[in-house]
Amino acid sequence: MRKVDAEHIEAITLGASVYGTDGGSDPDIGKLIAMDMLRRHGSVPMIDVDSLLPDDLVVPVALVGAPTLAIDKFPSTQQFIGALAALEKTLGRKASVLMCAEAGGLNATLAFAVASQVGLPLLDGDLVGRAWPELQMALCDDRGNTVVMETVTNQHTERFVRSLLGDMGGSACAALFPMTGAQAKLAANTGSLTKLREAGDTILAARRNKLGSGTSA
């Protein structure tokens, strides 16, 4: 288990920019939100899949919708809390571990912000490239409206979400695809958050040592 503090977010954001490969909106917005949250609510414990208990409830969180709009009407962690609460109510259980849905772009840094505020550990991993076992999704917009969907196929989730997002203002905060600890061990793309931080640390060290061409004048 490692503790992630506000000062680690800079490296994680750089890594998220690299791994985001220009998608996933602007990680800097997530950086500002995450650093603010970590300063106010404290560090985030980051845990490996191996530490998961079989009956943990692992809930990924993500901003869904148009990335360009997220830099205008930026998301608030309050919306994630709303989405999480709606999902927990449907499932009749509380989340014990949060998870990042995609380790790149804005969603990487947002996951830390949410974990800090709700006080839950964050799994070192993400969902990219994986098929997930459950298809419940709870969405929460900036006015506190929540919508919980339980669909039979991924394609249905996709279609319903796209219809809803327009009315919600282009993007919404989601708690989605919950899984047990046992399922997460099989399904998660493990260690990806550590990879972000290592990439970011490498870049920062290179800048400090003035290796390569760098970007600061």
Binding site: I29, I33, S76, D142
Partner: peptide, 14 residues
């Protein structure tokens, strides 16, 4: 002009 949105980042953030 933004409420209820954008409360996560105050003006002059950063």
């Amino acid at each position: 002009l933004a409420l209820p949105a954008t409360q996560s980042l105050q003006p002059l953030s950063g």
